[in-house]
Design a protein around this nucleic acid. Structure first.
Lengths: 137, 137
DNA sequence: CTATAAAATTGTAATGATTACAAACATTTA
DNA sequence: TAAATGTTTGTAATCATTACAATTTTATAG
């Protein structure tokens, strides 16, 4: 599928700027942040503004074309380390719930040469409460 | 184990401030941020500064008494949504690697009433490169 | 082909969490 | 008791993100 078709399929009008941001994400093997995307594309789109990059990424995320990668760059909520568990965050109301009883994730095969200290699992979606409020889409 | 013993066991001197922050985390069922911890404890410790809360949480995290919870509050790195995978971030060099071949996480039993849109897995530890550099502790 | 409306893009300023850093204070050790 | 070490504090700086209004571009109706 061509890139513009991917955007259209997600209900996004494929403007040039959007296409180029999509292309950049598509080619990037790392996980670029806004600054990086802006610096990379600004020479090609001289009028590009950082706000547009923010807007576009928010749009992509909302329409599920892209997703935000959770990293420890800006950590701001804390848990005692004693009870490992996952977190569910509702995209409607923002509430966070603990999720226990997750299957163990075995990493030995996937990461044989790494020393694993911690595994964070964040599940996002719509909680039971918010599903009552919202009609089916 | 008493709280001060927990701190000592992790090599942290149990000062009053540290004990109270530990107690607060221990009692909190949600995932408080720095502001919240500060607001809750400032009446009890009138001289408390926010910097101390930051310092203490960094210490706790470093000594593995607490851990930072990954949430979508400040999302700043992006991925195309098309290839779900986990991320490994090295705590020494900060490098991020993709991790494929993770076992599927089945959430139906754990979250029967929720609508799950996305699952983010962040593994942290020391990468193969950085293990060469560092002698065994 | 205009005129109008809608959507996309831009730039500036504000916000707010986090960090840097040096000073003040407390505690331990010689 | 003095010196050294560790802890706490306050202020200022940083930096990603957001708010918002203005501008430009694109689509649509007459």
């Amino acid at each position: 599928m061509q890139n513009d078709a991917v955007l259209k399929a997600h209900g996004i009008k494929p403007s040039l700027t959007r296409m180029m941001i999509f292309d950049y994400l598509n080619a990037a093997k790392h996980h670029p942040n806004v600054e990086e995307i802006y610096q990379a594309l600004q020479p090609k789109i001289p009028t590009l503004s950082k706000t547009t990059v923010y807007n576009t990424l928010h749009l992509f995320t909302e329409k599920r074309v892209a997703r935000a990668v959770m990293l420890k760059d800006q950590e701001n909520r804390y848990d005692l380390a004693s009870h490992p568990h996952a977190h569910f965050q509702c995209t409607k109301c923002g509430k966070v719930e603990d999720v226990f009883r997750l299957p163990d994730i075995h990493l030995d095969q996937a990461l044989p040469k790494h020393s694993v200290h911690d595994v964070s699992v964040l599940i996002s979606g719509v909680c039971a409460e918010c599903q009552k409020d919202e009609p089916l889409i």
